[in-house]
Amino acid sequence: MHEMSVAQNIIDIVLQHLPDQNAHTVKSVNVKIGKMAGIVPDSLEFSFRVIAADTPCMIDAELKMQLVPLIIRCNGCTKETNIDDPVFMCPGCNSADVTVLSGTELQVSEIEIEDTT
């Protein structure tokens, strides 16, 4: 539901990094999306298309979503686990004292640009 606002933020960040909006077009935008980032990829794709369609240098930009697994590390036995269900407990020793290593990120990682011809 907040994907529209997220898409707007992504496009704002991309535009800030574009050397010249008149001389370049964006071919692709890479974003990292954690499994626990609270984002529905289809919904983000839809929102991105809507806003990109109104942004001349981004009309053909592809949104590449890299989904990042939810990985925890046990602070007791140091075991690292890729968890499917949101149960923040070490399956090795049942400890609840765990650190989340990845899976919450929501980040623009890189863009590909091309000269306008």
Binding site: V6, N9, I10, I13, V14, H17, L18, V31, E105, L106, Q107, V108, S109, E110, I111, E112, I113
Partner: peptide, 8 residues
């Protein structure tokens, strides 16, 4: 390619 690495 331009590397960005910024939180959305």
């Amino acid at each position: 390619v331009i590397t960005i690495e910024r939180k959305v």
